[in-house]
Write a protein that binds this DNA or RNA. Structure first.
Length: 108
DNA sequence: ACGTTGACCTATA
DNA sequence: GTATAGGCCAACG
């Protein structure tokens, strides 16, 4: 495994409960801005990682749950987020702007 | 080995 | 404001 994926997983695990972030923010934090798709790939491989990765806390820039289909059940991701106190409406995070957790600002 | 795809983002029309 | 285009790079067929 390259350090890139490990770094991505490390960041995702450090996301506080009830907060979310975006692929672009993570990519930018890792210095691979513009290649945010790789972050998505990292998430794709996250499910066969030993350590659990809360990929449900990572959404796209619009706060839309685009990756929900990659979970076992499309509704699983929304349930997990709502379980953490996040409000979802039509697969979108309503208070996304408030719940947004920027690793550059918070983790830097 | 090559072409296509993808859990994205930014920019232009 | 929505629509389309381009760029990015790794994995899959």
């Amino acid at each position: 495994m390259s350090d890139f994926y490990q770094s991505v997983y490390a960041i995702v695990r450090q996301i506080p409960i009830g907060r979310v972030t975006s692929y672009g923010a993570i990519a930018k934090y890792l210095g691979t801005a513009g290649s945010s798709r790789m972050v998505g790939w990292a998430m794709n491989l996250s499910h066969h990682q030993e350590m659990y990765v809360p990929a449900h806390r990572v959404v796209n820039r619009n706060g839309l749950l685009t990756g929900k289909i990659h979970f076992g059940s499309p509704d699983e991701m929304q349930e997990l987020l709502e379980n953490e106190g996040i409000t979802i409406e039509n697969d979108c995070i309503t208070n996304f702007k408030d719940l947004f957790w920027d690793p550059i600002k918070e983790l830097k």
